[in-house]
Design a binder for these strands. Structure first.
Lengths: 115, 115
DNA sequence: CGGCATCCCTTGGGATACTG
DNA sequence: CAGTATCCCAAGGGATGCCG
């Protein structure tokens, strides 16, 4: 369990880039954020959308983001059970970073293809 | 060896965010890029600047970025040997992403501290 | 100084089976 | 459907020692 990305508010790295890296966690977590930017998602939806991620890894990374305060987890007492994940305000504030990554990815692919 | 981040120009992920994640590689590699943004650096300088990274890991990640085309490695035939690392134009083009990460890290730290 | 090569440990992560 | 529990493997990464 764990997977990184916890770290209490205190004891943040000095370098702001490192702060972001720490809060973001890892590649899977970025993909989770990317998906949640589109809106609320259920566990199974995330799994399908991300692709190539196992149940276990998805869950542990969602827990990390939850403990992080970047993702909110809503459980509905229904049968069958329903759980919905969404971005917290803090999580949503990461949008500029995702935008920058998305933009760079686009231009990079372009520069690579027509070469 | 390897450490991720290779992947030939072809066969890039469909999602641009994923493209960037793949090219960036991992946390260490981001810190390397962060450092090289300041200018050319020698291996030992990078090691000190990044902190907490071992020789082996530093080297393997530098190799990954080199194979990536984001970092340039210049070897000078001197005694003692000198090796200098710098960003390629493509590597430098990642600046907006690092800027976004830096900015978010700053504001996050701020929001956390005065609370 | 930069960097292979080893040895070895820790962690991420896949697969599968089972429960509420 | 969401999630936990095992089992197990591969990769990341630390520490040392040696070489050009």
């Amino acid at each position: 369990m764990s997977v990184y990305g916890e770290r209490s508010a205190e004891s943040l790295p000095k370098c702001p880039v490192e702060v972001t890296l720490t809060m973001i966690g890892n590649k899977w977590q970025v993909l989770i954020l990317r998906e949640l930017r589109e809106g609320t998602r259920r566990s199974s939806e995330l799994k399908r959308a991300i692709g190539g991620i196992s149940q276990k890894v998805l869950t542990s990374n969602l827990r990390a983001k939850e403990g992080n305060g970047l993702v909110h987890r809503a459980v509905f007492a229904e049968v069958p059970p329903r759980v919905e994940y969404s971005l917290t305000p803090v999580g949503a504030s990461l949008s500029p970073v995702l935008d920058a990554m998305s933009a760079w990815g686009e231009s990079y692919r372009a520069s690579v293809s027509h070469r």
